[in-house]
Structures are given as C-alpha cells and as structure tokens.
Amino acid sequence: MSILAHYNDWAVIVLMMAGLYIVISTRSFLKKVVGLNLFQTSVIIFYISMANVTGAAAPIVTEPVDAADYANPLPHVLMLTAIVVGVATTAVGLGILVRIHEAYGTVEEDEIVRHDFDS
C-alpha cells in the first residue's frame, strides 16, 4: 500500500487539478476550453483505470469463460459516451468562441467584460 501503488489515482488527481487550475487561472476563453478538456480526460482515465483487472485480457469473448479473467468492459463503454460528450462540448465551445472572436475581436475574458458587462 505504498503511495506509488495508486499511481493511476495520482495521475487522475494531477490531471484534474491541472485542468481545473487552468479553467480558474487563465484569462483566455480558449485556454479554458483546453483546461476543460484536460479535466474531462482525467475523469476518463479514472473510469478506465478502475475497470482494469490485474493480468486480465481485453474483454473480447468468443466462448463462455470466467468473467474474472477479463477486464470490465462497461466503464470503457461509458467513457465512449463521455468522450462523445466531451467532443461535443469542445466543438460547441470552440464554435461559440469563433463567434465571440468575430463579435469582440478577442477571446480574453477581462477584455470582453470591460467591453460589455461593466458598462
């Protein structure tokens, strides 16, 4: 039970915090999208790593066998959906960003706020 035994969890945590930090700290909407992506990726790794069964094979089953020999396929399926959600979010976010750039000439949040919201 050393700290390193949970290296996957640490990876998840580092990725997640990095993603959130980017969302919080950056002024640029564009970078926020990147941060969000990172954040979502961490969740995907979190799910995938929990499906792992040590020493097991990929869950491609041809004849009836012991389920414990295979990794759990469900999280992978779930994450396929989550990836789609993530892609869609990114696409929508970028789409909106392009139009923000057309409308304001910038994607920096503080400049936009100064332009429009403080008046």
Partner: peptide, 8 residues
C-alpha cells in the same frame, strides 16, 4: 453579442 459570452 453578450449572449455568446453568456453561453460560453
């Protein structure tokens, strides 16, 4: 145009 920012 603020709708864009709000949406984002």
């Amino acid at each position: 145009r603020r709708a864009l920012v709000s949406a984002f």
